[in-house]
Nucleic acid binder design. Sequence first.
RNA 1: GCGGGUGUAGCUCAGGGGUAGAGCGCAACCUUGCCAAGGUUGAUGUCGUGAGUUCGAAUCUCAUCACCCGCUCCA
Length: 525
Amino acid sequence: MAQNVKTEKSMEKIVSLCKRKGFIFQAGELYGGLNGCWDYGPLGAELKRNLKDYWWRKTVQERDDVLGMDGAILTMKQVLKSSGHLDGFSDPMCDCLLSKARLRADQIPPQNGTAVWYSGASHGASDWSTDKVFAVLVPPGKDVESARKTARQFYGQFLPDKRISPKELELAGEKSEEMTGTTRFNPENGSLLTEPREFNLMFQTRVGASADENDPNAIAFLRPETAQSIFVQYKNVLDSSRVKLPFGIAQIGKSFRNEINPRNFTFRSREFEQMEIEYFCRPEDGLRLTDEWLEARLRFYEEIGIPRTKLHILDVPDGERAFYSRKTYDIEYEFPFGVQELEGVAYRTDYDLGVHQKGAGKSLEYFDEETKEKLLPHVVEPSAGCDRTVLALICEAYDEEVVKDEKGKEEVRTVLRFHPRMAPVKCGIFPLLKNKPELVAKAREVQKLLQPFMTVFYDETAAIGRRYRRQDEIGTPFGVTIDFDTIGENGPEGRDTVTLRDRDTMEQQRIKIEDLLHFLLERIH
RNA sequence: GCGGGUGUAGCUCAGGGGUAGAGCGCAACCUUGCCAAGGUUGAUGUCGUGAGUUCGAAUCUCAUCACCCGCUCCA
C-alpha cells in the first residue's frame, strides 16, 4: 500500500511541524522572539529527555570506568582565565568599507605601501557631497591613480542617484602617507577597514546581589562548555571515588556562547546543552583511546536511529585542530542544510589539567600505585551536542510517504520514524468507537496498564484512521485499538486481545493484552 | 555585522488607503465496525512591533524585532 517515495526534506517543513505539534518553539515568541534561543514543547522535552537518559545510561551507568557529575553553570573568572577562554574566546573583527567583507583582524598580513587618504567627495552637477573619510593603500610601485579609482568606487555607493557614474565624483582632501607593516587595509583591494571590534563570545555576569559594578572579583561567566568544571573537579572525583586510570567523568548540561550569527533552527543556538565525557588516561594510550571512543560514539548514534551511512567522519587535519589537540575527529550528520558537526572526539593531551595545575598552583598529578610513578593524565574528550542530536533525530525521522486511500486516491502521509526508544510517545491507545462504553472502559484499562512504564496517548475522537495518522505525525511507534473482539463480542478466542499497529508498515497484529507490556518494553528499552 | 527576501488565524498562504479572507487544523454534537470518512455548529487575528503621513493605515514612509538565503563567524 505504501510506496516509499521520498519527497525532499526541507527545513521549513520540519520547523513548521516542530511548532505545530509542540516539539520546539522559539524562546520568547510572545514578545517577538529571542534570537538564538529555543524552548522545547511537550513532545520535544520528552524526545530530548529520552536522548539524555539513554546517553547517561550507556555512558555512565552501564560502564565501570565512567562516573557522572553535574557542575555549576556560573563559572569563576579564574577558571576561564586558566583554560584560555578569557583571552582566546574573543575575536577582533573588522569590515572592509568597500566590499563589506568581514575579516579577522589578527589574520590580516602586515602590508607596506602608500596610504592615500580622502576627507570626502562631491558631485557638482547634482549638488551632492559627503565628508566620509576613506583611504586606500597603494602597493609600492603602483600608481596613485589606482587609489582614486577605488575611492570613487567607495563614494559611489552613497550616491542617491544611481545613474551618476562614480567617475564624475570630485575627491576631496587627498593626502599621502607612507606605511610599513599596516593591517588597517584589506589586502584584496586596498580599501580601508573599520576599526577592529571585539566579539566577546562569553556571557558575563556578576555574582552577589549587590555586587559593585566595578568590582573585578565579582565577575563570573556562564560557562561556554561543560568541560571546565570536569577538569576543575577532576582531583575531587579521583580522591572520592577510588577509581584508577583510565577513567572518565561525564556530564550533561547547558552551555552558553554569544554566537555572532545563530542559524539553522536550533543548530547554532546561544544556549545549548552538551553531553561530554572527559576520559583520563596514560599518555601512551591517548591516540588509541581516541579511536576507540570514536567507534563507541558511532555505535551510539546507530542505536538511537541515526544510521552510519548518514554520518561523516572528519579527521581534522593538522593546522585546523585546536593548538593543544593531537587528534580530533568530527562526527558530522547530513542535515538538510548541509553536512554539519554533531560531536567532536578530541585528544586534548594534558593541556587542560596542565593549565589548571599551573593556574591554581596545585598539583593535579596522578600517582600510579603499580609503577610508583607520578603523572599528569592525558584526556580524550567525546563532546556531543545534545540539541544538535535532537535536531538530527527529527530530521532523520521526518518522512513523507505517498499512500493510496480506499478510493485509490494518492495522498501524503507525514510520519516521524523515530527509533522506538527515542519516540516521545511510545503507544497510542484507541477505543474503536467512543460511543460504546465497553470499548472506552477497556481502553482506559489498557491505558492504566501501560502508563506506569511508558508515555502513552489516549485518543477517542474522530475516526480511527485519523487517529493513527495523528500519531504517525508525532512519531508514535505503536498503536493499540480496542475493538469488539476485545470485549468478546465475536467469540471467546478474541476476548482480551487488541490490534497492535506498527507505525512504519501500518500493519496490524492481534496480541493478548497480557502480552502487551512485555512486547512494548522489549522494543522501547 | 553586510547584501537580498519574508512577516496576515494554530499551520500553509491569498488580498490590499475605507467592516479581515480561503484551505487545512482545532473544539462541541450527530454519525461511526481499522488508515487523514460525512454532516451541523463554533472559537481564534491589535495583518510582527513602534512611530510618521492621512479624515481614515493591515495597505504608503521610516525605524525596530524575528525568520529564510548568501557572505562572515564557529576558541
